[in-house]
Design a protein around this nucleic acid. Structure first.
Lengths: 224, 224
DNA sequence: CGGGTTCTTGACTATCTTCAACGAAAGTGG
DNA sequence: CCACTTTCGTTGAAGATAGTCAAGAACCCG
């Protein structure tokens, strides 16, 4: 998932379960802290996240890191390029994954519906990544953090006592590396949003959105 | 094209002409300044650039712009998401384009080889975009500009009098919006590279790489 | 409870942006 | 073909945003 404000309805789609009944392998269950694959591994399977949260990262030689995406329920991860994975994929929250053979994406093997679904997922991925370019290249720290919270609110927000509550299973460093910021800036920006009453921070991993409209405004860069 | 230092060989591939002989439409020739499509247009065709240069952009409501990619010979542009284009595509240099029907990507229609080639192009696109995330999120201005010049050197550099020469058909503002900088910063950074003898600026649209190794070092963030 | 990690906060700094002016290049029309 | 206009690029000075460094607080796990 590319946690960005999208102009289209990509992130608002209800959980999309691929429809095919053939050629899937047994389901996979992974514990938080384990890795699904590493950069350079050859791709044998794609995975649809059923439950849990994944984190896709890429590293530079000097240690700088970019979080490419978080994988939330409904997302498909593991698209190959030249047959290889180009990110590491760590499990942040115990996850239930549905594997699909790579050949199902690339050749279809007797299930055109599934083939088409996987292709469409890849194409939506491209569009979502384009949105994230705008985020990384053109948005301020406040806009980035607000955008991030907005999308998480839409996708995995929980209604609790009249307010929407959002879990942040990833660390501040993960958010920073996703948004192109430092942990300090993410922390300060969250504090700022808390002090202005837009959000409340229940605990480090739980944010409550008190003023959803204000949060959206901030995510879009409205000044007034 | 996502002009970034890639860890794999994506950008070094020789011009890849799709191999099929069926189901392509007549070739298209477009003049600089014309538009191939706009954001929101429905996608009927994909295009492989044969000659010329394209520019794919996306805008925010307040006018901020992100250049998503430049389309150079060999690149395929126009991947749909939910059937629509999500960028504008302007022709920067008179272009010769090979159109392919969208249905060829999505259904294959009697040409499995072409279908597979288009799918692989989409998957390489995803990987290339991941590299560009690193660029936008984690690199300094000098690293960004140096990376940009390095990739252009590899892809379209011309050997002239013992040095590699690179054409920059796009404006400074286009480069800035691609790298997540301002035109002023791009201009200053190019001047800095010129003053340190790494490049020469023959004219506004032509750079000569005098110290290729130094340029690569700068693109990777080496300090020494 | 204790030790290590992660998060927050503060002070300071660096990088990049903004604003402004000037110069060069390119397009237009007589 | 030249003068005029407009756009684009470069440079400078000042300012803002986010980064760096450092210390203390909160959280987590055994």
């Amino acid at each position: 998932m590319y946690v960005t404000i999208l102009s289209d309805e990509t992130t608002r789609k209800p959980f999309r379960t691929l429809s095919s009944t053939t050629a899937r392998s047994p389901e996979a269950y992974l514990r938080a802290g384990s890795y699904l694959y590493f950069e350079g591994d050859s791709v044998d399977w794609l995975y649809q996240v059923k439950t849990g949260v994944l984190r896709l990262t890429r590293m530079l030689e000097d240690g700088r890191r970019q979080v490419i995406a978080f994988g939330y329920p409904g997302d498909i991860v593991g698209f190959p390029s030249d047959g290889l994975h180009h990110t590491d994929c760590e499990v942040l929250v115990d996850s239930h994954l549905q594997p699909y053979r790579r050949s199902m994406l690339e050749r279809g093997d007797g299930d055109p519906d599934l083939h088409r679904e996987l292709l469409q997922a890849a194409l939506r991925e491209i569009s979502a990544m384009q949105d994230h370019f705008m985020m990384l290249g053109r948005k301020s720290a406040v806009e980035k953090v607000a955008s991030f919270l907005c999308v998480l609110t839409d996708r995995v927000g929980q209604e609790v006592a009249g307010h929407v509550q959002v879990a942040l299973p990833m660390g501040r460093g993960d958010i920073a590396d996703f948004l192109g910021l430092t942990t300090e800036t993410v922390s300060r920006t969250l504090t700022q949003l808390r002090k202005t009453g837009v959000i409340a921070i229940d605990n480090i991993h739980t944010v409550i959105v008190l003023q959803p409209t204000a949060l959206i405004s901030l995510s879009l860069g409205d000044r007034g």
